[in-house]
Amino acid sequence: MSLFIQHTSGITPLNRQPEPLYHRAADPSYAVLGEPAQTRRMCRHSKMGLYTAMECLNTLEHREVDGIIWGTGIASFESAGRFLKELVSNNEALANPAVFVQSSHNTISGQLAQLIQCKGYNSTYYNGGFSFENVLMDALLHTMENEEQQFLIGASDEMFPLYYDWLKDGGIAGHTGYLPGEGAAAFLVSGKPGSTPLCKVDQVLQLYNPGDGPWLQEELNNFLERSGCDINDIDLLLLGTSADQEKDTLLQPLADRMPAALPRIPFKKYCGEYYTATAFALWLAVQVLQNGQYPESITEVNNPPQEVKRILVASQWQGRYYSFILVSDPFIHPND
């Protein structure tokens, strides 16, 4: 079972200087999403998700897919936060229905279905640091059920001042480690390679609160073994550490035990820390496999790029959510 990625698109903070408090992705022109009257009602999070999804679909002649699966850790929190703040300030006297509807966590997958008239499977995962991992697992499950099907999948989370303030008040961000960040990424996937597959996702594993290092190490070894390889077969590690000692307490030692020559990119340095940062990591993995080199702005790599066939994404969120994603060249030979 493999999930072939046929196309991808992303809105990321990669080529942009971080703002003082957080990484902000460069906004494209959202005007392509529809009439100004329509797009004005959409919150930025929706626009980010819809734009990147539509860009991904534009490679298809008919923009037809069998289903849509989206992930988000905090969804359209700008709308929810605004609705909530207004309720407090006017003591429930007035409420804006449009803002309420935008605050539905599944607004992106719902709007996408309407935009492209996709009447098939439609789901949204709202599961913290596992939101995107849940999406990948669902897509892999679909390939097991019927490998012919083609899905649009993706994830998005948005950072904005009120969210930052509340995270800071809660002691969740703004103290140590990488800056908070944001981004949206979409992928066109199928159980079949299609004519021009960019790469394939072989496996995804999520572990909640693994407690101790040896268990995490054992799970990683088993994970690689199930895909018929070991750590020496990995050509690039996309490492989701937070640069926060407390949170990296299991993941950093795990990475330190890997071969010293294994090139590694601490990807949250570039996209910032957010719930669905592993979607950025997968987007980055696709760029590397597709172009055979790292994007220019990625400067923190311990070894020069070599031929990359297999990429391991190893990430953690808040020191409790751990995940591994194995991405490889679509035409990789088992003995490579």
């Binding site: 599944n106 949204t124 995962y125 709202y126 599961n127 596992f130 939101s131 909640y208 609160n209």
Partner: peptide, 17 residues
């Protein structure tokens, strides 16, 4: 809830209204 139940493997949260 995973912590309360002592579950460490797969968990998911769905939000489709």
């Amino acid at each position: 809830l995973s912590e309360q139940l002592g579950l460490r493997h797969y968990n998911a949260t769905i939000s489709t209204a």
